[in-house]
Design a protein around this nucleic acid. Structure first.
Lengths: 136, 136
DNA sequence: CAGGATCCATTTTGATACTG
DNA sequence: CAGTATCAAAATGGATCCTG
């Protein structure tokens, strides 16, 4: 392989750990890690309106390499967010589609995207100020 | 320095670019990139209930290195999400606090966290299934 | 078409030592 | 206490070639 899809380990202080023997925040962290992944978010968005083929996605997300698209899709498939359907034709055809779980995730992701959308100016301004006061 | 806080470049296909001359998705991507950042999310969460000092945060987020906490806080400060207040005492004291912008971001982030919370079992199960069918 | 395998460059992170 | 500086290790990503 070469690339691990495993999340990084995070220790949470006892006072913050929600439930001692049910679920610590590690699993949540690993999920956030996938959402945080640049490409995952875009793939999820691109699959909003129905299934897509591999190269179709590759063209839609201009700039992603074949390798990264493969890796991203594998990760999403592993998490049960996307299904992979192979049509045994020649040439081969593979469809990727959001699962119910994936569609559920889309909602909070969209909310985040919309927040980013509506506040991008404020953030850009803050960055400029910071860079001026600083690096200037 | 050594570490760039700049987002990675993303090209969007013309059909998907929301508005040609106002804002392409790059800025949104750069915001998502910060949220996607493992540590940023946790720092934002830890600052929910008021300002915190550097080492206080470091203890709360067990596992983060001093270096990464510094870098993370700088990034959040640059984006206008947290403020940094220095008390010129000896020993020095520095407080970090969420801005209004930061508190606003907390909402969608929390939504995402809650989704992750409530679906972690499904995802864990999916991962196990995938790993069994696969690596097995 | 849809990848798998390799190799290499860049980024990111951690450990460690030092400072006002 | 709250960092900065430096170095080494590890993760990540792209380019390229190959295959059913």
């Amino acid at each position: 392989m070469g690339t691990s899809l495993e999340p990084t380990h995070i220790d949470f202080p006892a006072e913050r750990r929600p439930d001692p023997n049910h679920s610590d925040c590690r699993s949540v962290a690993s999920i956030l890690a996938r959402v945080g992944d640049k490409w995952s978010v875009f793939v999820i968005m691109m699959l909003s309106d129905g299934p897509k083929r591999f190269n179709e996605l590759k063209r839609m997300i201009n700039g992603i390499s074949q390798r990264m698209l493969t890796l991203t899709l594998r990760g999403l498939e592993r998490d049960g967010l996307v299904t992979r359907t192979i049509f045994p034709t020649i040439p081969p055809r593979v469809d990727y589609e959001l699962t119910d779980l994936g569609r559920g995730l889309q909602q909070p992701v969209k909310a985040l995207g919309e927040w980013a959308m509506t506040h991008q100016d404020q953030i850009a301004a803050a960055r400029t100020r910071f860079d001026e006061r600083n690096g200037g």
